[in-house]
Design a protein around this nucleic acid. Sequence first.
DNA 1: CCGCCGATCTGCTGTGAGCAGAATCGGGTG
DNA 2: CACCCGATTCTGCTCACAGCAGATCGGCGG
Lengths: 112, 112
Amino acid sequence: MADNDAAPRTPGRTTPQPEPLWREVLGRRLRAHRMEQQEKLAETAERAGISPQYLSEIERGRKEPSSEMIAAVAGALGITLIDLTQQVAEDLRASQPQAARVPARAMLALAA
Amino acid sequence: MADNDAAPRTPGRTTPQPEPLWREVLGRRLRAHRMEQQEKLAETAERAGISPQYLSEIERGRKEPSSEMIAAVAGALGITLIDLTQQVAEDLRASQPQAARVPARAMLALAA
DNA sequence: CCGCCGATCTGCTGTGAGCAGAATCGGGTG
DNA sequence: CACCCGATTCTGCTCACAGCAGATCGGCGG
């Protein structure tokens, strides 16, 4: 159950940094939440109104969920899109090298 | 140029709060960035490797961009996915009534 | 009036979202 | 060992929509 080989198709990637993709980080966060609640895929999926297979794929970053799906899964897990997005942002920051952890605004302040 | 009538199809919405959708808030943030830089749709879209029409639709929350597209547009605007996601989270928080602005963890601390 | 420009609309096609069924995996029991 | 079961992942399929090209719109200047 350890597989994270997302097929990267990057049509116009202009950033040289190898950032993870939104769906990957989102998926990991959703799975983390589900596991904190000690829930099965089928339970959360049922409440979210989607199939367990699909939830599995979302969690593993294999599929790109629509915004409504994101909202549905978040709701099923009892979290808001606000908190979810905040946590994804934090996860993104934590997944990067030290330099990237400085917010861009702080960098601008240093430059000024 | 004031139209935000996103067609909401909410298959399993379990949260009673009328939260905006991820793509809507993301799109607004992307447009805000582009305008800060006083760029045309065509310029940013060119650098991102997508069509101007499509960028327009992304910005207006009409289309669900893939994670790679999000990364490409962010890159074209010179921002990281980290900062972008952080800002979307902040925008989400700012778009909600007062109570929703309190992070969930702070609420748990108050309950304890 | 016309032409130009930026943004949005419209219609189209290929791709992938989302699913059902099959397969795999891990754990337990006799 | 074989067998069973539940949970998760894999596989193949259909159709909705992502992404685009061409058309249209509104504003501006000559």
